[in-house]
Amino acid sequence: MAAALGRLLLAALLGDPAAALPCYGDSGRPVDWFVIYKLPAHSGAGEAARSGLRYKYLDADSGGWRDGVGPISSSAGAVGRSLQPLYRSNASQLAFLLYNDQPPKAGGAPDASSRGHSKGVLLLDPNGGFWLVHSVPHFPPPSSSAAYSWPQSSQMYGQTLLCVSFPFRQFQDIGRQLTYIYPLVYDHKLDEPFAQEFPYLAAVAKGQHVHLKGCNSSVTLASQKGTPFWSFAKSKDFGDDLYSGWLAAALGNTLQVQFWPNSRGILPSNCSGAQQVLDVTQTAFPGPAGPAFNATEDHSKWCVAPAGPWACVGDMNRNLGELHRGGGTVCAQLPALWKAFQPLVKAWEPCREPSRA
């Protein structure tokens, strides 16, 4: 009852828009969810490919990966169109949180090493909104910017972005997940009615987080169309790898994990448990035109169960430093998502043989 009254108060105070803020697809129409795979530079022919602005697009109705409608820097594509409300002057009915452990214009920002290794956007109005989970440093521009843009620093390497449209009530659960992750919020707007409705989001905006040893949290979220997604979030005190220390067992599946292998202290493939966690070393899109590339060219963060049915997109690597940082991933059992990601794995690192005395 209290939540319902809060929503009515919120609508009365902020107006009653005709529809929630959705993820927009490459078609220019609202979609329940989409995934963008920004390809590494020089991964194909054409200026967009050479400059690192080419991408592949996937949603529930795309029939698999499609070429993006243009460069990812364009506001006409799925990412730019979805984020466009951030850069409008009449944004009084919006609430948003932009978080990134490598924020734009990082000078003067708090030390990110104690914050979650996490990147994302929450954008909502009184009817709902979306959660964009991504791997892109220095992105997106703050709301004070003149328009949407793509950072030059994130053109060279591959990146992934998952956008899911959610009804209004789900943002309390999303906010609770973020309190575990402890993200670095570099821009936000959470007026009092929104802050009252979503105390966890208000806490995240203030830089608050949980302080329980070994704590982690998973929650099932229902999209605007009722599609189930599972959010997995760990705190900096969890003290273990997200994938081999929790996710593989939670999903009951071996996982092939794509992550940034150019950082220090990379964790090798792990076959110590009932479910293996295998580091992806090469990715290849189906078809004669590919493209194919090595993990060293790819900053994206995703994993897939080779035998199905799980696929996840998130913002965490497998390295020693991130054992003690918050972070997470969003998973689904959608055939369209699994069938798109499962064939991408071209090669992976086998588990090392145990030493013999």
Results as ranks from 00 to 15, higher is better:
D191I: 04
Q170Y: 00
G6S: 08
N317H: 12
V121A: 06
D279F: 00
G70D: 14
R88L: 14
L320T: 15
L178V: 03
R29N: 09
E322C: 07
D187P: 05
A332H: 01
L5A: 15
C215I: 04
Y37G: 04
S272C: 05
G290R: 15
H299R: 10
K189S: 05
A147V: 00
L8G: 07
G28F: 11
L58D: 02
A11G: 12
A307M: 03
Q196M: 06
F238L: 12
V345A: 07
K346H: 14
Q282F: 11
C23R: 06
W310G: 01
T179I: 04
L5F: 13
G273M: 01
Q84W: 10
S113K: 13
P354K: 03
Q208K: 10
F198K: 00
V345L: 03
P268D: 13
Y37S: 10
D187A: 12
L97F: 06
A295N: 14
Y186T: 04
T283N: 09
A49L: 03
L53M: 06
A112R: 10
P141Y: 04
P261S: 09
S300E: 07
S300V: 07
T296D: 11
D67S: 14
L255Y: 07
S114R: 13
A60F: 10
A249T: 13
W65K: 03
H211M: 12
V69I: 14
Q93D: 15
S144Y: 01
R352W: 00
V277C: 10
V204N: 07
E192R: 15
L201Q: 01
F232D: 02
A45C: 05
D111E: 13
L53E: 15
D26Y: 01
I174Y: 01
R176L: 01
A2I: 11
G321N: 09
A49H: 14
S27F: 02
Q224D: 12
L5W: 12
T296L: 06
P142V: 07
L94P: 09
P199W: 02
S272T: 14
G68N: 10
